[in-house]
Design a protein around this nucleic acid. Structure first.
Length: 424
RNA sequence: GGACAGGUGGCCGAGUGGUCGAAGGCGCUCCCCUGCUAAGGGAGUAGGCGGUUUGUCCCGUCUCGAGGGUUCGAAUCCCUUCCUGUCCGCCA
């Protein structure tokens, strides 16, 4: 959420930021709304002040036993009551209106985000590893089904399209991958492991930016929503809190199931495990001070990259362009892993710095050392990694001519074997 | 789901209609005292909004889980709601 005071003090900057986003919002509209609010607030305060001081006079008169004087002031102040109530009501309305006006506005982009319309204009920053050209490469669906361990038909019977049933060594592989990632992030990179709920109320989703605008992407369960990512829960752990500066940076990781309606992606990635309604992901979240969030962003991206490096999966790191950067993010790096079955790089991680955008929505603050007033924290989130897609990448990159899958070195202890092959 | 009991400042905890943003204690910060340690004395110590000023010092107002009501006036009375605790039921 944008800071109305910042918009007021530099409307041109806001309008320019919206232009980069291709969004319609105008500083002048918001300022007009806020000016109404401020004028009303001042009138309200004046009326409250008068009512309060006169009520005190009544108390004083009564204390002295001067009923006459008390009655006189009571008559005087009686008329103020409705006025105060009216102004308070209006104040609530105008404050809510302003918040509702600000909530759908996307975050301002970081200065170094390249201009571009869509994902084709993202900037490739670096590559790691050599894309494997496997003769007659099969995709993960062929491989998984041939192994008898990946069953889309069974999943459809249970839950419809965009679900999968994994069995035997592939079920175990999912668990091994998640364990490997969590161990790396907690033991090497110092993230605290968290096991959060996956059903959440609306407020946390407003906090991270999924609501009010993107409810079509979410599944609903009664009063709850199914969380589309652990970013929601991990980030909202600091909602409405004031942290001390020593507590920062706060780094958290969680392995959770994620649920997405995929409303806008009918027909896309219909084959295989790339785009599911339910998938598991190891998430990384950092809460930092504003001056350190840029370096934390680099660090977090490095943590996600390290997973791919240790799994020896070729990837490239992309800086998303203006048109492809998500609503809440100021800047986003995507990691794209090489998939021999598709012959291209596919997104496997997305690491974003939202700066104070989510913090404002959540009222997540910290007290800078030596400062009286609290400031908003910066929040960052990244996948480290999407487990389902990582499995896809392992299957396709480690496939053998006979259809078996070599187990990556780092997973061998967790899998208890060095090859996944069909039961005979 | 049923029955009770609660939700007050960083923490504990007092406060059942009148000058209460709120006693007291703890913690923390600063100062004084002190040979060290310990103890003692003094001052300070929430957040939002707005104004003023950019001398961050002052002023107004709101906030005692949340929302509404009664009243000239509510932490205190009434209603609704959320949450927590305990017991029962149920259950992984």
């Amino acid at each position: 959420m944008h800071d109305i005071r910042a918009i007021k003090s530099d409307p041109e900057a806001f309008d320019a930021a919206m232009k980069r986003r291709g969004a319609e919002y105008r500083a002048s509209d918001l300022i007009a709304l806020d000016e109404q609010r401020v004028a009303n607030t001042q009138a309200m305060n004046a009326a409250q002040s008068e009512q309060k001081s006169k009520s005190k006079l009544i108390g004083q008169a009564k204390a002295k036993g001067d009923e006459e004087a008390a009655k006189a002031v009571m008559a005087e102040v009686a008329g103020l009551k409705d006025e105060v109530k009216r102004l308070e009501e209006r104040d609530r309305e105008l404050s809510a209106e302003l918040r509702e006006a600000l909530l759908p506005i996307p975050n301002a982009l970081a200065e170094d985000v390249p201009e571009g319309a869509d994902e084709d204009e993202n900037a490739e920053l670096r590559r790691w590893g050599e894309p494997r050209r496997i003769e007659g490469a099969r995709d993960h669906v062929d491989l998984g089904e041939a192994l008898g361990m990946m069953d889309f038909e069974a999943a459809a019977k249970l839950s419809g399209s965009r679900f999968v049933v994994l069995k035997s060594d592939l079920a175990k592989l999912e668990r091994a991958l998640a364990t490997f990632m969590l161990n790396l992030h907690t033991e090497v990179f110092g993230y605290e492991e968290v096991s959060p709920p996956v059903l959440v109320l609306s407020d946390p989703l407003v906090g991270t930016g999924q609501l009010p605008k993107f409810d079509d992407d979410l599944f609903r369960a009664g009063d709850h929503w199914l969380s589309p990512t652990a970013e929601v829960t991990l980030t909202n752990l600091v909602r409405e809190t004031i942290l001390s500066e020593e507590e920062l940076p706060k780094r958290m990781t969680a392995w959770t199931q994620c649920f997405r309606a995929e409303a806008g992606s009918a027909g896309r990635d219909t084959r295989g495990m790339i785009r599911m309604h339910q998938f598991s992901k190891v998430e990384l979240v950092s809460v930092t001070t504003p001056d350190r969030s840029d370096e934390e962003h680099e660090r977090m991206t490095g943590c996600a990259e390290e997973v791919l490096k240790r799994l020896d999966l070729p990837f490239r790191t992309m800086l998303l362009c203006s048109g492809d950067t998500g609503f809440s993010a100021a800047k986003t790096y995507d990691l794209e892993v090489w998939l021999p079955g598709q012959g291209k790089y596919r997104e496997i991680s997305s690491c974003s710095n939202t700066r104070d955008f989510q913090a404002r929505r959540m009222e997540a603050r910290f007290r800078p050392q030596g400062e009286k007033k609290p400031s908003y924290v910066h929040t960052l989130n990244g996948s480290g990694l999407a487990v389902g897609r990582t499995m896809v990448a392992v299957l396709e990159n480690y496939q053998q001519e006979d259809g078996s899958i070599a187990v990556p070195d780092v997973l061998k202890p967790l899998m208890g074997k060095d090859r996944i092959e069909a039961a005979r």
